[in-house]
């Protein structure tokens, strides 16, 4: 099965592990893209042509998905830090439930902020 076996687990915690891994890699790829993108700051024309393309409603879906990845990975990361220090293993179910709620709230809020900033 190889590394696909990382994605076959069915307890909610196993799913959180799998998503942490996937979102971590997504964020890593985005980081690399982001650094390349920022090269454009060397030239005003290049920067403005790029931002007029990417800071737009067409790109909103991707931005919003990126926000979801970031918020889930960050909050779930905090949860992992707590458990990896040996704390709160017995309360892991309610903690994960709170995390799911916070992730959705953060996602909606972040997407809303971005969407309003995009204007018309």
């Amino acid at each position: 099965m190889g590394i696909l076996s990382w994605f076959k687990y069915r307890s909610p915690f196993g799913i959180a592990f799998m998503l942490q891994r996937i979102t971590g890699v997504v964020l890593l790829l985005y980081l690399c893209l982001h650094l390349v993108y920022l090269t454009s700051l060397q030239s005003k024309e290049l920067y403005e042509s790029l931002t007029s393309l990417t800071v737009s409603k067409q790109f909103f879906v991707f931005d919003s998905l990126l926000i979801l990845c970031g918020i889930f990975h960050g909050l779930n990361g905090l949860r992992i830090v707590v458990h990896e220090l040996g704390f709160a293993h017995e309360k892991r179910k309610p903690i994960l439930a709170v995390l799911v709620v916070l992730t959705i709230l953060g996602w909606v809020l972040g997407s809303y902020i971005l969407y309003t900033a995009l204007g018309d």
Partner: peptide, 23 residues
Amino acid sequence: CHSAMECSEVCPKQIEPAKAIQL
């Protein structure tokens, strides 16, 4: 260990192996 917690979920003796690892 990346705290997938699968071991603690299935252990028939409810040992919480994941917790032992983190301790």
